[in-house]
Design a protein around this nucleic acid. Structure first.
Length: 258
DNA sequence: ATGGTGGTCACACCA
């Protein structure tokens, strides 16, 4: 069983790449962020033709999340409890006994800005909700674009990024709080090459020079972590023409969904 | 100093 996360930065533009990638990698579940589509515009038929059902919640221009699955989708939720938020950033779905929580964490813009305050409050509400969800669902994965580089080794130039947005102490503390709930960073359960990232700025030839950050994560409950056999970043789609600025991250499990 | 989107054809907003 494979579960993946990919911030596609417009599903309208990236749909051909997503369909190709589904065919190549054959994930059981794919969580998408930044679809930037309203629900009537979601490409349900194209995705069904590829063999996947879809749950989605979107808005015009910004945000938007979706979960694609080969198996039927169960209980769905699209809001963080305690946060009255028109921004479509959360989609929880139960698939084959696994609780899948797809997240597009706010970017935060810059430390100290209004958007930064919103991000930290959002992460506080997220932690409270995940604590509850973990009591209800032993097998849980919280995955997506967290917009947080958890440690200096997740940053191409830690000195330049020190204290900056995506790397600030408060953001990293919010990420650690999720780990303190018992969630495990799937990527760090396995040996990895140094300077492996999941996002590279479009500007200044960031990808070619590997000036990236690891901000896309798959966090596993203990029961799910026990079955995880691999976690890796697939850089291939980032090399294509007109790529997303993020690469997909995949976790593999010794587990059959049913 | 790039890219996606929207609403206009030049630029603002967001990442």
């Amino acid at each position: 069983m494979k579960i993946a996360s990919w911030n596609v930065n417009s599903l309208k533009v990236r749909l051909p790449q997503v369909l190709d990638w589904l065919g190549e990698r054959q994930p059981d579940i794919l969580a998408l962020q930044e679809t930037k589509l309203t629900d009537p515009d979601f490409p349900t038929l194209d995705i069904a033709s590829a063999g996947y059902q879809a749950a989605f919640v979107g808005q015009k221009t910004y945000n938007g999340v979706a979960v694609l699955s080969r198996l039927p989708l169960g209980e769905t939720v699209a809001d963080l409890p305690g946060l009255d938020d028109p921004q479509r950033r959360v989609l929880g779905v139960t698939v084959g006994g696994v609780r899948v929580i797809n997240l597009y964490v706010p970017n935060g813009q810059s430390v100290g800005s209004d958007k930064y305050t919103y991000k930290l409050n959002w992460l506080d509400k997220l932690a409270q909700w995940l604590e509850t969800e973990l009591t209800r669902h032993p097998r849980l994965i919280a995955l997506g674009d967290f917009n947080i580089a958890p440690e200096d080794r997740d940053v191409h130039d830690p000195a330049a990024w020190a204290g900056q947005i995506l790397c600030s102490d408060a953001e990293r503390a919010a990420f650690r709080r999720l780990l303190d709930l018992g969630l495990q960073d799937a990527f760090r359960r396995f040996p990895q090459e140094e300077n492996t990232f999941s996002w590279w700025d479009y500007r200044a030839a960031g990808f070619r020079r590997n000036l990236g950050l690891r901000i896309d994560h798959l966090l596993l409950s203990p029961a799910l972590a026990a079955t995880c056999t691999a976690c890796w970043v697939d850089k291939a789609p980032r090399r294509l023409e007109r790529p997303s600025d993020h690469a997909p991250v995949i976790a593999e499990f010794d587990l059959e969904l049913h």
